[in-house]
């Protein structure tokens, strides 16, 4: 569990998108809180996974950390510096420390730039001279097991897995201390997924990078992370070390997620007792009072509609926001 040595410390971050009405003179009639007060910490060299279903705000949180969207409240401390307070000009030199790998290996590469130019772009922004750029790009390509001869090719000449490697090489070219992985394998075929996951793990072991891994596939999360934070409707509902979370989930939502995750084993898959949640995820424009999960929770009681459950520490590093958490 990271304490003062946290590399990234996110505190009470909110992200709100205005709901506008009117075509000519739009006015604000409400807001969607995509992220509603999230605090997480990432230690150097560790992998924190952020798990949740679509619309839970996990990608928005990542974009707020990277300042691709503006946090409306809260702090994003990277090595003690609050990134949300930096001017765009002061932010730019910080970008090299926190990089991003995108979900979509097609849209995330400039179609008219060669692989080498794409990988060298962050280096160029650091003001490196041309020869050094080429050299570093070559090293980055070798590191992700791409043949440097392919550097002159354009993205369309690569397969999905290879494109994702280019994206990883681009993120690594500036030797970041942290990389945000936004569903890096969910757009890839199964056999290619394994390859990219193995590569990411090897790179972490070699370079000591911290990962913030955003995912919805729990099996992949289990394989990949040190700690896991479960997100629901813009809030973190449970954080725990990986083994503990998968063995003793405390939040009813985590339990339901685990029980719903399909297993590639016909015998056990059919014997399993599933917790099938009723209903749908509420709209973030119209959040339930009290606990955000109560509308679907099998354990919900009167108190859940009134009081938003405070975080409870169950064990070292295991924090859950639930009135009726499994001890």
């Amino acid at each position: 569990m990271p304490a003062e040595d946290a590399l990234l410390k996110v505190e009470g971050v909110h992200v709100e998108f205005p709901i506008l009405k009117g075509l000519v003179f739009p006015r604000r009639v409400g807001s969607i809180s995509a992220v509603a007060g999230v605090s997480i910490e990432v230690a150097p060299g560790e992998t924190l996974s952020l798990v949740g279903e679509s619309g839970c705000g996990k990608s928005t949180l990542a974009r707020a950390i990277l300042r691709l969207v503006t946090a409306s409240a809260g702090q994003v401390l990277f090595k003690g510096v609050d990134l949300t307070k930096l001017s765009p000009a002061k932010m730019r030199p910080f970008r090299r420390h926190v990089q991003l790998v995108f979900q979509n290996p097609y849209a995330s590469l400039h179609p008219r730039m060669t692989a080498r130019e794409i990988i060298a772009e962050p280096l160029r922004m650091l003001g490196m001279d041309r020869r050094e750029q080429v050299e570093r790009a070559k090293q980055a390509m070798q590191r992700v097991q791409l043949r440097p001869e392919f550097g002159d090719r354009y993205p369309f000449a690569f397969s999905g897995g290879q494109r994702q490697r280019i994206g990883i090489a681009r993120a690594l070219s500036v030797n970041p201390e942290m990389v945000v992985l936004d569903e890096p394998v969910s757009a890839l075929d199964v056999s290619v997924q394994a390859d990219v996951l193995n590569l990411l793990k090897d790179l972490q072991a070699d370079l000591g990078i911290a990962y913030l891994f955003i995912a919805h596939n729990l099996a992949v999360v289990r394989h990949f992370s040190d700690r896991v934070a479960v997100m629901y409707l813009g809030k973190i509902v449970e954080t725990a070390p990986r083994d503990r979370l998968f063995k003793r989930p405390a939040h009813p939502y985590t339990e339901a997620l685990l029980s719903a995750a399909p297993m590639p084993d016909p015998i056990r898959e059919r014997k399993r007792q599933r917790i099938v949640l009723r209903g749908e995820i509420p709209s973030p424009a119209n959040r339930p009072t009290g606990c955000c999960f109560r509308t679907r929770c099998p354990k919900a009681a009167a108190i859940c509609a009134q009081i938003d459950p405070p975080p409870v520490t169950l064990a070292q590093g295991h924090v859950v926001n639930c009135h009726f958490a499994n001890a």
């Binding site: 691709l68 995330s108 590469l109 772009e121 962050p122």
Partner: peptide
């Protein structure tokens, strides 16, 4: 809106480089 423009922001590109190199050619 495309991801590669966000990628350029994260690479540390300034707004005019983003406009002239990453948006206009497309």
């Amino acid at each position: 809106k495309l991801d590669h423009v966000d990628a350029a922001v994260i690479a540390g590109a300034g707004r005019f480089r983003i406009l002239f190199k990453h948006i206009m050619p497309l």
